[in-house]
Amino acid sequence: MREMMIILVSAVLVDNFVLTKFMGICPFLGVSKKVDSAAGMGVAVTFVMVMATLCTYPVYTLLLVPFGLQYLNTVSFILIIALFVQLVEIILRRFVPPLYQALGIYLPLITTNCAVLGVTLLNITEEYTFAQSVVNALGAGIGFTIALLLFAGVRRRLEAANPPKPFSGMPITLISAAIVSLSFLGFSGVVENLFG
């Protein structure tokens, strides 16, 4: 149980997927303009990450490892993720339009999101057990959402700022991201000592 907690909290705080591992920056910068779109994206990414892990881990352990095809994991994982995301989008669009209205538009964005594939591959390289990798995916998703929401709050403040012409738009957002990731440094070392 302690192991799980360490994985979860470190994925959320210490090596946060966006601010320290640098995965999923494109949606992080693109979607955090409004708080509700950030929340929507966060939930969608967490959902896809967990489901992707549920799909890819068994495929890896049952199909690829017995036949020594570990090197094919990238191809198979990304195929599964793309398939899964498109399926969810189609189903949502048809049967749950309001949810699609809120979340659906982010789903295609998620297929090209480095964080989702990153989590599945990380589970393999870190040799997590099945339960641990699901927890890791959950932690990664929550970490992503927290970073997104935190950054959405900062960007609300950015609307009032007036940086010089060349810095307005994306450059000033990136500098704010730099400061936010600086603050996350404070958590380094907290996880290990917190759980003894």
């Binding site: 709050g153 900062v154 403040r157 603050s183 440094l185 404070g186 000592n193």
Partner: peptide, 28 residues
């Protein structure tokens, strides 16, 4: 945050990190 970082974090001084982190929450 200051107590958390001073007690468990790897940086001895937690004040600056905790103030910066709370700065991020000010909009909310």
């Amino acid at each position: 945050l200051t107590v958390l970082i001073r007690q468990f974090g790897s940086y001895p001084e937690g004040v600056s990190f905790s103030i910066l982190l709370m700065n991020l929450l000010v909009p909310y």
